[in-house]
Structure formats: structure tokens, C-alpha cells
Design a protein around this nucleic acid. Structure first.
Length: 422
RNA sequence: GAGCCUGUAGCUCAACGGCAGAGCGCCACACUGUGGAUGUGGAUGUUGUGGGUUCGAAACCCAUCAGGCUCCCCA
């Protein structure tokens, strides 16, 4: 190789093998979404930067967006998330859309951050949202959609769990501890960081934020109380609904789940792979209120979550849950014996395709062993050969590569023979 | 944006100042009408890139690019 232009940092190159995994995820995402009646939709990949200025965090807009000037001088950005586009599109047709609205989407997003395990600058994200219903039962349905996906890719409750909390519950607990409402944000980040810090430095950090030592003790007790949900009507209803939906075994209450995004107002949840080799959420979401008001719509409550393809892709590969890669979409190879019989093979290939089979014809008359090796490497199931002896009688040799058996049959019968093998 | 670690054959890695190697993969042949297995032989590198130190650099130093792990943020 000579001088190579490297791909842009953090972007993804999908060779057929990776493409197969991406499509596998896409298929599972689609069936989980559609099983609950969600409609597929999408938004522009490029948006005006102002769209995000309204509601996304400052970090996301100023530091993590791919922003540039278009030829007309306007500032545009590659979308870093979908929710603002959702809010705008729903607000624009609020009067004509049918509510409750259930939408899902799977597409590319970009965030300008340091690539590392589980995080790239370009990624695919599954978004699922329900708008127009404000109830714990609706929250439970969204979690069930996520769990349906986890289950469909073969993740057991031992391997992946959804951790749930409730912002309102935590706010009232913070109030009870005498933590002022304006400190809630600080305390949220404090809770978020607990898992990542040494206990001593975490406590020091807490006191730095102006938490009193008695509040700190209360906070520690709160974060260790895994029965706290039993005090909260919303969470009681949520878990009852999860039970009814058949996904309860995948969900557990955890007071340590806060989530950074400011717009969450009620239920919040995050899914993790339990071995913890990757300390990143598989998906995360929650209930949000009034997202539409900022883009000119009427107040409307919603619940949704998002899943990136990178973390789940790594997990599926590490746990051996990614499907075996099938190099060739064609399971049948027709060899080319020599120059004279070349077009006979082409004819047979065409005939087999008409019969509904995916068929590759070797593109040149090279030695047969080479063609068979090719078929083997491409994991094809059947090789069909027309040599001089077969051609004379209008026949073809059909070899089953899994057991090595070969039969010689009339060309007209080849398709049926192959159907039996596959 | 900050700190630390790593870049050697297609892949995984060794050599750690003194001739750049192994395993797997690849190619050829045994097998000129048939894949996987086995055997025999073969090819492969400006040691990420650019400078510097040295008699001598894959190794040491600087820069740069890429990747990884933290912090930050988050899907």
C-alpha cells in the first residue's frame, strides 16, 4: 500500500462482516418496535444549529457537534440526537397526527468527542418514543420495547438489566433531606459520579458542593435503599405493568440512576450489560415533559429511549451472540469448466435465478479446484458444474458441499435438487 | 479539552541498541474434472509517518497521525 488517506477520525467503515452485524441489529430493532405497533420515521441528517441550542445541553451543542458553514453561510450541524427534530416535526403537524403517537427510527448520528471503546464520532442510534400519554404504564411499555430487543438478540436477564428510577421520587427525597431545589442538578451529577469515584473522594466532593455531613449520610442511605420504589405510586404501577408485560425479570429499581439530560421529569432508565466489561449504557431514556413548547407546539408529554449501535455491537460480539457471518448471499456457485462451456454455465445460472435461487457463476474459466475453494471460503452450500460429459447429455453435476455428495441430473432438474439440499 | 498506555508481515504477537522472526492466513505443488484434511515448497515488511541521538535505531529522544484506557460527556 502506498499513501493512504485515512478515514476521518471516529467514523466507521463497514466491511461486509460489520455490515451484517449492523443489519442484524437493525432487523431486531425493527421487529421489537413493530411488535408494539411503532411506526418508522426519520428526520434530516443535517439540521440548523439553533434547533439544538434550545433544549440540548450546552456541552452537546458547543463541544460535541459537527458544525460547519454551508455555501450560503448558514451554520449547519450533523445531527447529534433526534429528539429536537422529533419535537419540531410533531409540533408542525400536531393538529393532524394521530395520538398517542408511537414512532421509532434507526439512523446515523455524529458527536465530536474522543473515540474510545463503545464511543465513536459516527454511530447509528435506535430511537423509540411515545407522545401524548402520561402514565407509568406508558413508561413500562417503552421499557418493554427495549427488553423485547434485548431478549430477541439472546441476552438473558443475567446478562443484561434495565435499571429504573424516578426523578420526582428523588426530588422529593432530596427535599426531605433539606437539599435546596437549586442544588438538585449538582446532586444529580454527584450521584452519577459515585460509581466512578473512590468513596472518600466522592464524599469530599459532596461536601465541596455544600452538602452538610448529615445530608450526606441521608444521601448515602437513600442511594443504598433498593426498596425505595415501594414508597412511590408511579413506580409501584410501573413495576405492576412490567409484570403484566412479561418483562419484569429484566428490570430492577436503582436509586443511583439519574441521567444527565435536563429534560427528564419522571421515570428514567438505563440498560447495562451485567458483567460490566463495558461500563456504558446499552440504552437509556425516560419521561420528558413540554419538549414541544420550545419549538412552538402545545405542551405534550412523552417517553422515549435511545440505543447506540456501538455498545450493543461490542456486547453481542463479546458474548458470542452475533450471528455467524455468511459471506455470500448466494448459496449456489456454478463453476465455469472452460472457455467453450462458459456460456452454458451462464445459461444455467440464469435458469436457477429464474427459479428463485441466489446464484453466483464463477466469472472466469480457471482451474476447478480454485473455483471449489472459492465456494468453500464463501461458505456456499452447493456447487454446480457443467463439464464436457454433462454438456453432451444436457446434464449438470450438483455437489452438496456439506456432505460431499454429488449427483448428475438433467439441467431442468437442477433447481429442484438444490431446493432439497438447502 | 486534559492525563496515561500502545503502533513490527493480511491477522495475533516475538525480537528491547548489533543480520527483523514465529504461529495463523495467503500462493504453488502432491491432486492437469471437484472444496474442507495432510505433507512439501514459496512470497510477504521503507518496524504508523517525519525528524533527531548513535559507529549502528524496530528499540532511545522530539513531533505528528492512529488506536486504547481514564476524566468530561453520553447512545
Amino acid at each position: 500500500m502506498k499513501k493512504v488517506i485515512a478515514p476521518v477520525k471516529g467514523t466507521r467503515e463497514f466491511y461486509p462482516e460489520q455490515m451484517a452485524l449492523r443489519n442484524f441489529i437493525y432487523e431486531k430493532v425493527r421487529s421489537a418496535s413493530e411488535a408494539f405497533g411503532y411506526q418508522e420515521w426519520d428526520a434530516p441528517f443535517i439540521e440548523s444549529i439553533e434547533l439544538y441550542a434550545a433544549k440540548s445541553g450546552e456541552e452537546l451543542v458547543k463541544k460535541q457537534s459537527f458544525t460547519f458553514q454551508d455555501r450560503g453561510g448558514d451554520l449547519v450541524t450533523l445531527r447529534p440526537e433526534l429528539t429536537p427534530s422529533l419535537a419540531r416535526m410533531v409540533a408542525a403537524r400536531q393538529g393532524e397526527l394521530t395520538f398517542p403517537l408511537r414512532w421509532w427510527s434507526f439512523g446515523p448520528f455524529w458527536r465530536y468527542e474522543q473515540p474510545q471503546k463503545g464511543r465513536t464520532r459516527e454511530f447509528f442510534q435506535w430511537n423509540v418514543d411515545m407522545l401524548g400519554v402520561n402514565s407509568p404504564e406508558a413508561d413500562a411499555e417503552l421499557i418493554a420495547v427495549g427488553v423485547t430487543f434485548l431478549r430477541s438478540v439472546g441476552l438473558s436477564p443475567k446478562q443484561a438489566l434495565v435499571y429504573v428510577n424516578n426523578r420526582r421520587l428523588m426530588d422529593s427525597e432530596f427535599d426531605a433531606l433539606g437539599i435546596a431545589p437549586e442544588k438538585r442538578l449538582d446532586v444529580s451529577t454527584l450521584v452519577d459520579r459515585r460509581a466512578k469515584m473512590e468513596p472518600a473522594s466522592w464524599e469530599a466532593y459532596a461536601l465541596e458542593l455544600g452538602i452538610t455531613s448529615s445530608q450526606l449520610e441521608g444521601l448515602k442511605a437513600l442511594l443504598g435503599n433498593y426498596d425505595l420504589w415501594k414508597k412511590n405510586d408511579e413506580l409501584i404501577r410501573l413495576f405492576a405493568a412490567l409484570e403484566a408485560l412479561g418483562v419484569r425479570e429484566y428490570v430492577t429499581f436503582d436509586p443511583n440512576i439519574m441521567r444527565g439530560l435536563l429534560y427528564y421529569t419522571g421515570t428514567v432508565f438505563e440498560a447495562f450489560e451485567t458483567s460490566g466489561s463495558l461500563r456504558r449504557a446499552v440504552f437509556g431514556g425516560g419521561r420528558y415533559d413540554n419538549l414541544l413548547a420550545d419549538v412552538g407546539g402545545q405542551s405534550l408529554s412523552g417517553v422515549g429511549f435511545a440505543m447506540g449501535d456501538v455498545v450493543i455491537g461490542i456486547i453481542l460480539q463479546e458474548l458470542g451472540l452475533a450471528p455467524a457471518f455468511e459471506p455470500s448471499p448466494a448459496q449456489v456457485l456454478v463453476t465455469v469448466f472452460d472457455e467453450k462451456l462458459w456460456l452454458e454455465s451462464y445459461k444455467l445460472g440464469a435458469k436457477l435465478r429464474n427459479a428463485g435461487l441466489n446464484v453466483m457463476v464463477f466469472p472466469e474459466p480457471v482451474k476447478l479446484p480454485k473455483q471449489f475453494k472459492f465456494a468453500d471460503k464463501m461458505k456456499m452450500k452447493v456447487v454446480v458444474t457443467i463439464g464436457p460429459e454433462e454438456a453432451e447429455k444436457g446434464m449438470a453435476a450438483v455437489k452438496n458441499l456439506s456432505n460431499g455428495e454429488q449427483v448428475i441430473v438433467r439441467c431442468e432438474a437442477v433447481a429442484d435438487i438444490i431446493q432439497n439440499i438447502l
